[in-house]
Simulated assay, not measured.
Amino acid sequence: MLSGLAQFQVSRLTGFLRGWRGLGRFWTITGGLFAALLASLQLAGPPPAAIGAAPAPLIAHRSKPTGPVRPRVALLVGGIGLSLADSVAAIDHLPPAVSFAVMPGSGNLDRVLPMIRRRGHEYLLSIPMEPRRFPLDDPDSATALMTTLADGENAARLRTILGSVSGYVGVTNVLGPLKGESLMSAPDLFGAVQKEIAGRGLFFLEAGTQPLAAKGRQADAVLDDDPVNSATLDARLDALTHIALDKGAAVGIITLPRPVTLERAAAWSRGLDAKGVDLVPVGTLASF
């Protein structure tokens, strides 16, 4: 027969062991629930990426070719996001090597950007800047970079624009048919834009003749600056091809994805290989 002290010690040990068994059952149940949760997540697949969460595409401009290359041509289509139907048509009908310029603040980007990424297109961000014919042409003066604003206000607006979208590899002054000529003609104002862009490791594609200090590229042709028909577009696209053949590289811009421009650009792209020209993303030629 156990003494009172022994009985007390046995009682404490029994309670202790019961506590551990209860704790063990708790962790067993918790572990089972956690394993079931992991299994359900694996079956469901990864969650859809948020609009601003996509990394920048891995594109060829980050490493220059080391061997001989054929003549190359790049095509940028602007105004993506302005019209949902036209933007979807551009994504669906143009080859992945064609680059796009997306419109910041567009209500269509939440639908358009995932489609662009799935198809493997490189995209740039259009920067709204005061154009030559402002206020007749208005890039949204409440948010755009303007010559009448103080440097600090323009800098704040630029940072807001650059932070509104992610995954882009460069920026451009092509905002649909607008090109921000007035802002770009002000050396101090545009110089601040270039400095911010260069500091972020981005390139600048410019439609015009403004000298560029930051890493960038000027387009060789804007193909739809005026109303065009199929014959005119074919002639301009053919001229762009010959620039590539003569110089080794060329960049063309289509400011808006209108049906006729998309149709002729798609047909042109299908004939490039036979002419000995490779279609490449704009970023491939940005530093050249």
Results as ranks from 00 to 15, higher is better:
146 M>Q: 01
222 V>A: 10
149 L>N: 04
135 P>D: 07
101 A>S: 15
66 T>R: 15
198 A>K: 03
261 T>Y: 07
86 D>P: 02
181 E>I: 09
90 A>Q: 12
61 H>R: 09
266 A>E: 13
86 D>S: 15
6 A>M: 14
15 G>Q: 07
39 A>G: 09
61 H>F: 07
243 I>T: 15
190 F>Q: 09
10 V>Q: 05
46 P>C: 08
194 Q>N: 07
149 L>I: 00
99 S>K: 02
132 R>S: 12
51 I>C: 05
32 G>Q: 10
214 A>I: 07
184 M>N: 03
184 M>P: 00
113 L>M: 03
172 T>Q: 00
232 T>N: 07
30 T>R: 10
27 W>A: 10
106 S>G: 15
279 L>N: 05
236 R>V: 01
206 E>L: 11
32 G>F: 11
177 P>F: 13
117 R>D: 11
1 M>T: 13
131 P>E: 02
107 G>H: 10
138 D>F: 14
167 G>P: 05
270 R>L: 15
8 F>H: 12
73 V>K: 05
96 P>I: 00
75 L>I: 00
9 Q>V: 14
20 W>Y: 13
100 F>L: 11
113 L>F: 00
140 D>E: 09
87 S>N: 06
139 P>A: 01
176 G>K: 14
3 S>R: 11
205 L>P: 00
30 T>N: 06
110 D>F: 14
114 P>Q: 06
200 R>F: 08
251 V>N: 10
241 T>H: 03
257 P>W: 02
4 G>Y: 05
189 L>C: 03
28 T>W: 08
172 T>S: 04
64 K>P: 08
175 L>M: 10
258 R>S: 15
59 I>Y: 06
57 P>W: 01
52 G>C: 06
12 R>Q: 13
183 L>D: 02
133 R>E: 14
172 T>M: 01
144 A>L: 10
136 L>K: 12
210 Q>A: 15
151 D>G: 07
248 G>R: 08
182 S>T: 14
83 S>Q: 13
229 N>A: 02
73 V>N: 04
20 W>G: 05
255 T>C: 07
199 G>T: 13
45 G>Q: 03
248 G>K: 09
259 P>E: 14
143 T>N: 10
40 S>E: 08
247 K>A: 12
43 L>Y: 12
88 V>I: 14
19 G>I: 06
154 N>Q: 02
175 L>R: 02
47 P>R: 00
216 G>L: 04
244 A>V: 03
232 T>K: 13
239 A>Y: 01
35 A>Q: 09
162 L>I: 13
193 V>G: 01
172 T>H: 00
67 G>W: 01
185 S>T: 14
174 V>L: 04
223 L>R: 00
256 L>P: 00
161 I>K: 03
21 R>Y: 13
43 L>N: 11
104 P>H: 04
132 R>V: 12
240 L>F: 09
41 L>D: 08
224 D>M: 01
94 L>C: 08
49 A>Y: 09
